[in-house]
Design a protein around this nucleic acid. Structure first.
Lengths: 186, 186
DNA sequence: GACAAGAAACCGTCCAGACGGTATGTTTTG
DNA sequence: CAAAACATACCGTCTGGACGGTTTCTTGTC
């Protein structure tokens, strides 16, 4: 009988740990490596323990999705609150969160969302709804053609970074940032 | 004993069929559903037959990657040949191939490339090299800030389409196309 | 504050099916 | 007939998940 059985119980911490491990695994070794065995072991919990928090694998992925989008919502809301100019406000927050390396704590983890999103057809619908909500909330201030273009470009940058495509140097990134921000006001 | 064993042999056709089925499966049911059993069965070939053409699973994915990028190369080369203006030529070909629905035959299949790319860490390196080569070949004509921005935006559009995010209507798409093309000349 | 008692948080084992791959046959083609 | 193009049978491993047990936490009662 292992010691783990007798340790102090911190259900919330364990749950969080499981999600973080799942994210890390997916990012580093591909989504196929996210197995119940691998996740539970890397999190220092038995498989039974994992299945206690998430009754099946899908609910683990759902939990990951919910966890990430929740933090994402907060990060975007923070940026929008500090932006006095209405026009393009959401788009600038979008840039700030996704393009800047320090835009969000542990940016690496967000890549996982994309990976999981693309791999799991089931999660695509959730993502669609998430995007739709933001678009609807900010129609008027952020529905200009150039605003859309900027957000798509940020997505593209994001994807390039995710795939490890040759990235820009710091100077080019700074210039790109200026250009993107300028386009949100045009 | 099945009929398939006795049919006329068209190795090249079977090979192509296997690749197409693998692509279709990955797109429709996620990359996890691309198994040797599923692919061979859907292609009307036994697993042994599949393994004759592709000695292991990785080589099947490699074959898919090679097949897709090859067609991609041709499509881009075609577009570039018909474009008289040097500046931004590659970027316009890029737009034409990836943004226009009729840009490439069976555009659906290209989504698979992205999915496989993201799912299989092994293929990311190949993709990196592919991108790097094109960037190096077209440095000078397509390395302007706005050209990069346009290509990233196209990638973003591509990703949105892949994820099934709410898409633009025909009118907005046309306006977006004009804007993108204009930016390649600025 | 003691204490029973149920709920919550785990653990370890087992299993059926799926998966990638091998080994060996059979048929067709050149 | 040799080699290519298939098919069939089978194996070891991994995976998701079910299950029953054990320990800790919480809550109500006195």
């Amino acid at each position: 009988m292992s010691k783990a059985h007798h340790r102090k119980k911190h259900p919330e911490a364990v749950r969080q740990q499981l999600l973080e491990v799942a994210a890390k695994l997916s990012l580093e070794k591909g989504p196929a490596s996210v197995t119940l065995d691998a996740v539970s072991q890397a999190a220092g919990v038995s498989k039974g323990g994992l299945l206690h928090h998430f009754p099946n694998k899908l609910s683990l992925l759902d939990g990951l999705f919910a966890d990430l989008t929740e933090k994402l919502d907060r990060a975007i809301a923070d940026r929008m609150r500090d932006d006095p100019e209405p026009k393009g406000r959401f788009t600038r927050a979008y840039i700030s969160v996704f393009f800047l390396p320090e835009g969000i704590a542990d940016g690496e983890k967000w890549k996982v969302l994309t990976i999981a999103l693309i791999s799991e057809p089931h999660l695509r619908e959730r993502w669609r709804q998430w995007v739709e909500r933001y678009l609807a909330e900010n129609v008027g201030t952020d529905s200009a053609l150039d605003a859309m273009l900027v957000r798509y470009a940020v997505d593209g940058l994001w994807l390039a970074d995710l795939l490890g495509s040759p990235t820009m140097d710091a100077e080019a990134r700074a210039a790109m940032l200026d250009r993107l921000l300028a386009l949100t006001r045009s």
